[in-house]
Amino acid sequence: MSTATVATEFAKMRRLRLGWFSGLLLIGVAALTVFPAVSTIAAAGPSAPDGHVWRVVFGNLGLATALVPPLLLAVLASRQVEMEHRGNGWILSAASGVTPGRLCRAKFLAVGSLVVAATVATSLLLVAFGLAAGAQAPVPFGRWLGYTASAAVVHLAVLAFHLLLSARVENQLVGLGVGVLGIVLGVFGPVLPDWASHLTPWGYYALITPADYVGADLVHLDIPYTSVVALAVVGGGLFLATTARFDRQEA
């Protein structure tokens, strides 16, 4: 992948204000995690058991992650690809030696870097909130690192899908509609069997939920890292295979 091609995508992103949308990804997830957590933590008071603050933050984070990213990732992909449809960008890029598949891979690297940065920044912001909220237990760095990496993988898988969809379907409303469907799959994923959640990338938002209620108790949940790695391998392979097919087609 040419560095110049990726740099060109970053230049396009500045004109499209994609940095603002990635900021909304950070703010949206953080806000939907913090606002309900404040009242829950305050209600528990100083008598709450050790680790309660972190469980509350993780529990709200799981729902916030299923609600916000599916639609915003669709918007990010749509805006980055729409200009190619409107301005004959596929043809112009092909004329300069950048095939459609190569262009999609450059878009993924550029937009994906923003998504990963927003995901990491969100986790850091929420760790700071937990400390400010008076968490007595030490910061569970292992859980934070595991969840952040898992969320980044799922975000990138969803982004890759939307980039391919936006490249193939000129009507960008289709991608946004799929993003709304992704919210439904992510939110209601916990009530589905695990095998059903494995069938779509949005189902993984339910699989990586870091904390939830078991009966009346809010407890940490184990993230299925093997499934997340499988998603990265399978999703990455499908993305590379599909973009390689794009390379063999006319722009």
Rank of each mutant, 00 (worst) to 15 (best):
M1F: 14
S2G: 14
A4K: 13
T8Q: 11
E9F: 04
M13Y: 04
R15T: 13
R17A: 13
R17N: 09
L18G: 06
L18E: 09
G19N: 12
W20A: 09
G28P: 05
T33F: 14
F35W: 15
T40L: 06
A42M: 06
A43V: 13
S47G: 08
G51D: 03
V53S: 14
W54Y: 10
R55S: 15
L61M: 09
L61D: 09
G62I: 01
P70N: 10
L71G: 11
L71M: 10
L73F: 06
L76M: 04
A77R: 02
E82P: 07
M83S: 15
E84W: 03
E84F: 09
H85P: 00
R86E: 04
G87H: 05
G89T: 03
G89P: 02
A94Y: 08
A95Q: 07
G97P: 03
V98F: 10
T99H: 11
T99G: 04
T99I: 14
P100D: 12
L103V: 10
L103C: 15
C104E: 12
R105W: 01
R105G: 04
A110H: 04
G112V: 01
L114G: 09
V116Y: 02
A117C: 09
T122Y: 03
T122N: 12
L124D: 07
F129N: 09
G130K: 14
A132Q: 06
A133M: 05
A133P: 11
A135Y: 07
W144V: 04
L145P: 02
L145Q: 03
A149P: 02
A149M: 03
S150C: 00
S150I: 00
A151K: 02
A152C: 02
H155Q: 01
V158T: 07
A160Y: 02
F161I: 15
H162D: 07
H162E: 05
A167R: 08
A167C: 05
R168Q: 15
R168A: 07
V169F: 05
Q172M: 12
G175Q: 04
G175T: 03
L176P: 14
V178W: 07
I183M: 11
I183L: 14
V184F: 08
L185C: 09
P193Y: 01
W195I: 10
L199N: 04
P201K: 00
W202A: 05
A206W: 00
A206F: 01
L207C: 00
P210V: 01
A211C: 04
A211Q: 03
V214D: 06
G215K: 11
G215M: 08
A216W: 06
D217R: 05
D217V: 14
L218S: 04
I223T: 00
Y225K: 03
Y225Q: 05
Y225H: 06
T226V: 07
S227Y: 01
V228F: 00
A232T: 00
V233W: 01
G237M: 15
L238Y: 13
T243A: 08
A244W: 05
R248G: 07
Q249M: 13
A251N: 07
